[in-house]
């Protein structure tokens, strides 16, 4: 068994952590390194850093900054933002990241997933998927870091996650955009549907507002990890309290 992973996500712009509501209207939440160290000390199982403007601005993330984070952390971390080649992904790992997450570039050129898996190993390759409800189905969106460019990728979410897995993704992070930043709970239906289609680990993202939302998503969607941002950044839900609650409900968590 593995412990259910609690994963704070830091959306970073110019070294500062920001958080928006439904991907728009970003607010400053503090210095990225300081928040990373705080989460490490509180018992976060893993951290994710998204350079949210890299992809829309057509650039990649800052490797020096990856190195600074790698020196600081003794828990795993994943980086994302504008990684569109195997070499860029390899450089992130060379600078100390454990995993790289790709999103819009994988939609532009799905073969990138397989190329990265072949050279770096599937375990380093995370595919992030931004998904929005559309009638009875879910549709993938891309360029979501920029409200003016965010648009449908014209793919069904359930098709895309299985394609990504077949191509070599070692983990899928499914971000349910309808729930993002509103703290009403994870999209359990969508995540359970995704879990049923995958053999690789699935991480839930979007909607966490309380400890019970984490319990629900682990119990009802059987995800390996749950990612959240504002509920941690604001201090509304300290990680030690969340873990004590989950352990009390019978889930295996790392103390």
């Amino acid at each position: 068994m593995t412990a259910r992973r609690i994963i704070p996500c830091l959306d970073v712009r110019d070294g500062r952590v920001v958080k928006g509501i439904r991907f728009e209207g970003h607010r400053d939440m503090g210095n990225a390194s300081e928040l990373a160290a705080r989460y490490r000390d509180q018992g976060a199982d893993e951290l994710v850093f998204y350079d949210i403007t890299a992809s829309p601005e057509g650039r990649t993330l800052d490797y020096g900054w990856v190195r600074d984070i790698a020196r600081l952390l003794d828990i795993p971390f994943c980086v994302a933002g504008g990684i569109r080649s195997v070499d860029q992904a390899a450089r992130c790992l060379d600078h100390g990241a454990d995993k790289v997450s790709i999103n819009s570039p994988a939609l532009e050129r799905p073969d990138l997933i397989g190329e990265m898996a072949l050279r770096l190993g599937s375990q380093c390759v995370v595919v992030g998927v931004d998904s929005r409800r559309s009638g009875d189905d879910w549709i993938v969106h891309q360029y979501t870091g920029d409200a003016t460019r965010s648009r449908s990728a014209q793919r069904r979410t359930m098709d895309w996650i299985t394609e990504a897995q077949t191509l070599g993704a070692g983990e899928i992070v499914l971000n349910c955009m309808d729930e993002d930043g509103v703290r009403h709970g994870y999209d359990l239906t969508q995540l359970a549907a995704a879990r049923a289609r995958l053999t690789v680990p699935l991480v839930a993202s979007g909607g966490a507002g309380s400890a019970s939302h984490f319990l629900e998503v682990f119990q009802q969607a059987d995800v390996s990890g749950a990612l959240a941002a504002s509920v941690f950044h604001t201090g509304a839900l300290p990680i030690p309290r969340l873990k004590a609650f989950l352990a009390g409900a019978g889930l295996e968590v790392r103390p």
């Binding site: 068994m1 992973r5 199982d45 070692g170 053999t199 690789v200 790392r254």
Partner: peptide
């Protein structure tokens, strides 16, 4: 159980060894 095995698991120590000196039971 998803593959890869990705995440934190507990160690159970089978025999004493200098490399494992000082580890708590159920170290993650």
């Amino acid at each position: 159980l998803p593959v890869p095995h990705m995440g934190w698991s507990k160690l159970s120590i089978d025999r004493d060894d200098p490399l494992l000196e000082g580890l708590e039971t159920d170290a993650w």
